[in-house]
């Protein structure tokens, strides 16, 4: 039965869907960021993090940045049709994401040890909330990467790679913004 399907339906639809999803995510984190500033103004306080935490945070940011770069490598490899290299760099990206999560857990742990645990103050709680919510999205991103990895042998076009790539870079950028908000 001929059913109405647009040309390139899958590609166009998914990208539009992804853009809307990202807009929603931006609103979610935008609300959290505004709440952070409102609370900051409200208590006329500052979230002063110990240096070690800031250094850990910068290290994690770098890890996430590197994972974005490895993803760009894998995209390039895909374009050159070197599927094995593509797979390798994709795996590196996944590891980068997992390292980032582990790093974040370590950071949380360190913060708790230094006495800024959960429920020790609204601003640090906002930091936990923002990084936690971001971490959940990173998990979703890692799942997407693993899905990409598992289908890497069957891929014919690069639009799925593009799609996951957009999301992954977006998550990296999002973390950069969140971290900047918390630092300044």
């Amino acid at each position: 039965m001929p059913v109405f399907i647009l040309q390139n339906k899958d590609k166009d639809l998914s990208i539009i869907g992804l853009v809307i999803t990202m807009a929603s995510i931006v609103m979610l984190f935008g609300t959290l960021i505004s709440s952070f500033y409102v609370l900051k103004i409200r208590m006329m306080g500052q979230l002063t993090l110990p240096n070690i935490i800031i250094q850990l945070g910068i290290a994690n940011t770098v890890i996430l940045l590197i994972s974005s770069i490895t993803f760009i490598f894998s995209e390039n490899m895909f374009r050159k049709n070197k599927l094995n290299n593509y797979s390798f760099w994709l795996l590196m990206t996944i590891f980068g994401g997992i390292f980032f999560l582990i790093g974040q857990m370590y950071l949380w742990n360190k913060m708790t040890q230094l006495g800024i645990g959960i429920t020790k103050g609204q601003l640090s709680d906002m930091f936990y909330l923002m990084s936690g919510a971001h971490g959940l999205h990173i998990i979703a991103g890692i799942v997407a990467l693993i899905w990409l990895q598992s289908t890497s042998k069957k891929l014919t076009t690069n639009h799925r790679v593009n799609l996951v790539g957009i999301f992954w870079h977006f998550l990296g950028f999002l973390w950069f913004v969140l971290f900047a908000v918390i630092l300044f």
């Binding site: 807009a23 929603s24 609103m27 979610l28 709440s35 609370l39 429920t119 609204q122 909330l129």
Partner: peptide, 25 residues
């Protein structure tokens, strides 16, 4: 819906943390 439901979602998550783990947003 796409733009503003996330806003209340963020608020509700903060409220949920207030209700469960004892934050004081």
């Amino acid at each position: 819906n796409a733009v503003f439901v996330p806003v209340i979602a963020a608020g509700l998550v903060m409220l949920l943390l207030d209700q469960t783990i004892g934050t004081e947003f």
